[in-house]
């Protein structure tokens, strides 16, 4: 029983990282209604920039974190310009395929510049385990959880208390109407991309710092975890992204404890498959897909 609770607890902390990735996906999907498969790889660019700063300047975790976020933002801007700004509305499939191309390009770029298989990344410092009622928790996991909660809180304020948030919600809801209300949708999309990339950068830093090895496969990992968490939660819903991330973290952790690391990823895909069949709207079932279905029913 205690193991079960322990694994659940660990799952929640990892899931918090996944939730941030899923939020980034959701923001981009919300304003664009298109998938950005290069989201994970653009975060990977940030992570490698962080590694670079760490290895060459022996920087502490804070400069590395900042470099990671900046790298993710720059790569995110590159992806937005290449795959979404340059490819006009109505060409959703072309956009998605182009993000795949950019993904491969970024991965190749990193393998050329960083030829070794793995690189080191700073941890948040040597920390003790915190113990409570027979449960233990790594301090950096607790920090990760705290930062994730803080990010979600900030994002909520940004989306519901500022003009920028209002315009992001308007564009997500109805891009055409938003344009006629004077909102420059191109600018909103660009800024939403920067926001999503920054969130992704933070998530990337936290995930890598708690498991401090860096490989070019991080891009693939981040895209898949974020995408699966978003689909589990319900596309287009931020509460859904959080729920999906946490669920994914918990399930993965339990599968790993029971059946080992290989089963962990298998379980993630199996879970996605089951959801797509039995609950395609996701946990929240309140995302864009469900809303559009509801709108159709009204007509």
């Amino acid at each position: 029983m205690i193991d079960f609770i322990q694994n659940t607890l660990d799952g929640i902390t990892i899931g918090a990282g996944y939730a941030l990735l899923a939020i980034g996906f959701t923001l981009i999907f919300g304003v664009l209604r298109r998938l950005n498969l290069a989201y994970g790889p653009s975060i990977m660019i940030g992570v490698f920039l962080g590694t670079f700063i760490y290895l060459h300047f022996d920087a502490g975790w804070l400069p590395v974190a900042i470099a990671t976020v900046i790298g993710a933002i720059l790569a995110g801007i590159y992806v937005e310009r290449m795959c979404f700004w340059a490819i006009k509305e109505g060409a959703a499939l072309a956009s998605m395929v182009s993000t795949f191309a950019i993904w491969m390009q970024l991965e190749e770029l990193v393998t050329v510049i960083f030829p070794e298989r793995t690189y080191k990344f700073p941890t948040l410092g040597e920390m003790d385990y915190l113990e409570f009622a027979g449960l233990e928790m790594r301090a950096e996991h607790l920090i990760m959880l705290g930062i994730a909660v803080l990010m979600v809180g900030l994002l909520h304020v940004l989306l519901y208390r500022t003009r920028f948030g209002l315009s992001v919600r308007a564009v997500s809801e109805n891009p055409a109407a938003a344009r006629f209300m004077g909102i420059n949708t191109g600018r909103v999309i660009f800024r939403a991309f920067i926001l999503a990339s920054a969130i992704g950068g933070v998530a990337g830093f936290l995930l890598v710092a708690t498991d401090p090895t860096v490989t070019p496969k991080f891009g693939l990992q981040a895209t898949f975890k974020g995408l699966i968490a978003m689909m589990l939660g319900g596309m287009g819903s931020i509460p859904g992204a959080i729920a999906g991330g946490v669920l994914l973290g918990i399930v993965e952790r339990h599968m790993q404890a029971e059946f080992g690391a290989i089963m962990r990823d298998m379980a993630a895909y199996a879970l996605l498959f089951l959801f797509l069949i039995f609950r395609p709207g996701g946990i929240m079932a309140q995302g864009v897909a469900a809303r559009e279905a509801a709108a159709l029913r009204r007509v």
């Binding site: 919600r169 308007a170 809801e173 109805n174 055409a176 109407a177 938003a178 006629f180 809303r291 709108a295």
Partner: peptide, 11 residues
């Protein structure tokens, strides 16, 4: 305004 109404339905 639009012939087919275009509001922000979830706002």
């Amino acid at each position: 305004t639009f012939q087919n109404i275009r509001l922000f339905n979830n706002m």
